[in-house]
């Protein structure tokens, strides 16, 4: 086995995996705290990529500012979506909520097609084509940025959930919503901010991954699919589980594609889900439900 190629494939896998983790974190937060399986999560990823694109092309903002602006705007959209759809439905049947998130996904994707056009677009980033050689491994600055920004954001999110007052409110709500309400936690506020945080994270992933690929209005499908694979593997509602599961998925895809067959790459995710559900239905890294 050629070590250079092996190291390169591992590096590729870790970068892709970290992007999956970033996508999955929002998904798992929303499931953990709001008990919503949010099929529209991928659409917020798509919106993040497009807003970054338009902030760059129409407003002339630099890439980083555009990405941050995109994430903030999408977070605000998340607040609106939660207020209009999910909060009023919170006492309804799970299935109703599931369907409405699917409806929201279709609504956003179709409006995206009308507003943005069906043709692919490219999010310009000054880091996209700059190559970094790290030992024998070659990565673009953008890919290093995806990894580094994701690490920074995840550490920040982790510390926030663990130690901040609001983070404690989120965890309490996730572990026992009625108990949280009777403790004096404003559940509506927790739902609203958690949904905003999740949408902002989705948008940020879109803005970061955008310059490594092309964007079009249906890229949300890809994002939500990867997100769900990771969330199911890592355990619904578990942030640390999502971290390990995402990196694992990225590396296994990369090695599977590199040493077995590319045709096999996509199947790996599904195979892993089935294996995990059979062997550890609560996820690979999960010991109990609830946000920890």
């Amino acid at each position: 086995m050629d070590f250079t190629v092996f190291a390169q494939q591992i590096a590729n896998g870790l970068v892709n995996g970290m992007a999956y983790v970033l996508i999955a974190t929002g998904l798992t937060l929303v499931f953990g705290v709001l008990r919503i399986v949010n099929f529209a999560h991928g659409e917020f990823y798509m919106l993040g990529a497009y807003l970054t694109y338009f902030a760059g092309t129409l407003l002339g903002l630099d890439y980083i500012t555009a990405a941050v602006l995109g994430a903030v705007v999408v977070a605000a959209l998340g607040v609106v979506a939660n207020k209009l759809i999910f909060w009023p439905l919170r006492r309804d049947h799970e299935f109703t909520i599931l369907l409405s998130s699917l409806g929201l996904a279709l609504l956003i994707a179709n409006s995206g097609e009308l507003l943005f056009g069906a043709d692919p677009k490219y999010v310009e980033s000054p880091f996209a084509d700059e190559i970094l050689d790290i030992g024998t491994v070659t990565l673009t600055q953008q890919r290093v940025l995806v990894f580094a920004a994701a690490v920074a954001v995840l550490v920040a999110v982790y510390l926030f959930i663990r130690y901040s007052r609001f983070g404690k409110m989120m965890r309490a709500t996730a572990q026992n919503p009625d108990g949280a309400a009777l403790t004096g936690i404003n559940i509506g506020l927790v739902h609203s901010y958690t949904f905003a945080l999740a949408c902002g994270l989705a948008a940020l992933s879109g803005a970061l991954v955008g310059p490594t690929v092309m964007i079009f209005p249906t890229i949300g499908n890809w994002a939500v699919l990867k997100g769900f694979i990771v969330v199911i593997m890592g355990g619904l509602g578990s942030v640390t589980g999502a971290l390990f599961a995402g990196l694992l998925l990225g590396v296994i895809e990369s090695l599977g594609g590199g040493y077995i067959s590319l045709g096999f790459m996509e199947a790996i995710g599904y195979a892993m889900i089935i294996a995990v559900l059979l062997w550890r239905p609560n996820g690979l890294f999960s010991t109990a439900r609830g946000l920890r």
């Binding site: 250079t4 190629v5 390169q8 494939q9 590729n12 896998g13 892709n16 690929v213 590319l262 996509e266």
Partner: peptide, 20 residues
């Protein structure tokens, strides 16, 4: 040669192999 899938969005794995 490498064959990629019609749904793929990332090609670095295949291209790493071809470059090698």
């Amino acid at each position: 040669h490498e064959f990629y899938n019609r749904t793929d969005t990332d090609f670095t794995t295949a291209l790493t192999k071809l470059k090698a």
